[in-house]
């Protein structure tokens, strides 16, 4: 990797560093270089939303961003959602309301819902459906996810 670049960033409050080619996607950097495999790789072209993480506090897709572009950024991934050994209210609600089945979309779904509730703490059902339409789920039919986000919103307000 003669043309490798150094990428320094903060992930889940921890400063991390790695070297990769500029063409490396951020999601692959997280999984392969930093060992953070909680973020899933789905369609790899920005449609399915499975790889959604928070970049400087805002949800974005890590499969259509280069790792080198995240140099200096602050990331939050699914691994950073638990605090002090306790599940995040969103995670609790997804468990409580059957917001997941196979779990493949769940990391992206949770990070997308987290951003949705930060920008809109009291969303209507229609707004929740619009918000989570950024992530494809092939198991649940979305009903459980909508109920989970509603329940988490009540708890987080």
């Amino acid at each position: 990797m003669a043309d490798a670049v150094t990428v320094r960033l903060t992930v889940n409050g921890v400063e991390r560093e790695g070297r990769c080619e500029p063409r490396k996607l951020l999601v692959d950097f997280l999984r392969e270089d930093l060992g953070l495999t909680g973020t899933h790789v789905g369609c790899e072209h920005g449609i399915c939303g499975a790889c959604t993480i928070l970049i400087d506090g805002e949800a974005a897709r890590s499969c259509i961003m280069l790792a080198v572009q995240a140099d200096g950024a602050e990331l939050l991934t699914i691994e950073g959602l638990m605090r002090d050994g306790k599940l995040h209210p969103l995670q609790e609600a997804f468990r409580e309301h059957h917001g997941l089945q196979c779990g493949f979309c769940t990391p992206g779904m949770l990070m997308t819902a987290l951003d949705l509730l930060r920008t809109n703490p009291s969303p209507t059902e229609a707004e929740i459906r619009e918000g989570i339409s950024a992530v494809l789920c092939r198991c649940t039919g979305y009903h459980g996810i909508v109920r989970a986000v509603e329940a988490a919103a009540r708890k987080m307000r």
Binding site: G46, I55, E58, A60, G131, A134
Partner: peptide
């Protein structure tokens, strides 16, 4: 335009 996570970037 896309979805909120698309509009972030």
């Amino acid at each position: 335009v896309g979805h909120l996570p698309i509009r972030t970037r």
